[in-house]
Design a protein around this nucleic acid. Sequence first.
DNA 1: GCTAATTTTGTAGCGATTACAAAACAGTTA
DNA 2: TAACTGTTTTGTAATCGCTACAAAATTAGC
Lengths: 152, 152
Amino acid sequence: MYKDRAFTENQLAEMMHTHGVRLSAQRIAVFSYVANGKLHPSAEEIFTALSPIFPSLSRTTVYNSLHLLKDKGLIRELEIQSGFIRYDLRLQEAHSHFICTGCGRITDMPMPAGIADAVLPDYAVGSVDVFIKGLCPDCKGRRKKDLKQIIY
Amino acid sequence: MYKDRAFTENQLAEMMHTHGVRLSAQRIAVFSYVANGKLHPSAEEIFTALSPIFPSLSRTTVYNSLHLLKDKGLIRELEIQSGFIRYDLRLQEAHSHFICTGCGRITDMPMPAGIADAVLPDYAVGSVDVFIKGLCPDCKGRRKKDLKQIIY
DNA sequence: GCTAATTTTGTAGCGATTACAAAACAGTTA
DNA sequence: TAACTGTTTTGTAATCGCTACAAAATTAGC
């Protein structure tokens, strides 16, 4: 694991407060589930994980919370796989993402240097996503035949 | 434009043949629409563009053709925006993609050097996607206020 | 031209997401 | 405490991209 994260509920509430997000138990839980843990969860995964804690939880609340946290700059959407969006804490330091095609796990990686330098002149960079797909160490041994040439 | 593409129907048919894709008028049209033009089109856009030429064209045929061309290694999926998949000709040389958040246009860019080097040891790289979002030269003047700090 | 295999087409269905309105809740003031 | 106001949550219905599937059309080999 490239980086571990652990935020107390107080820290999360403080972050929400300074970003102008009003507090509610559901919102804190959603934010906590994204911020802690290294799962880069989808809305459905968040809903499934939190339903036992909030038996009345609605999917719409999860979506509402995620949209609000995103608009206020606390979390970031990862459009890694079409079909659904994954969410990640928006950190200060840049990082890229490795997606294991064997087990589906997403791992933070250091961001390669010099990406913005490769952008053509007169283009204004807003955000950079680097998605690397392949096999994680666990899956590499099991599925060596799946490895072909690198595709860009 | 980083690179222009222009393939004759004969060239496209030849490429399909050498990759083991049987020919049909619809398939050639789909492949041509992806290979020529710099649109990085979605399935729906391809369907809309080709419908006048093949009045009986079915969405399913577009999806079938795209899946086949992808499986045979002729085209590549770009999972840039969640909700739908865009398609791109699979070129020999690596390139990255710039997505203008103003006009939606997607532009090929050179691939920054040294990406694979940043991957942690013991991870096997299969593919690399670099998606840079921001404003293209046309949109930059119009919407300078939209530019915030770069988000990774 | 006949037969078998492939391709195309149309319909029905699925999963993630959004729209929307009603219900529940929280904070403020009287 | 009660009433008022704005916010949040909830549940239902609808949308959109895509997939499953079977029937119809087309193609290829004989």
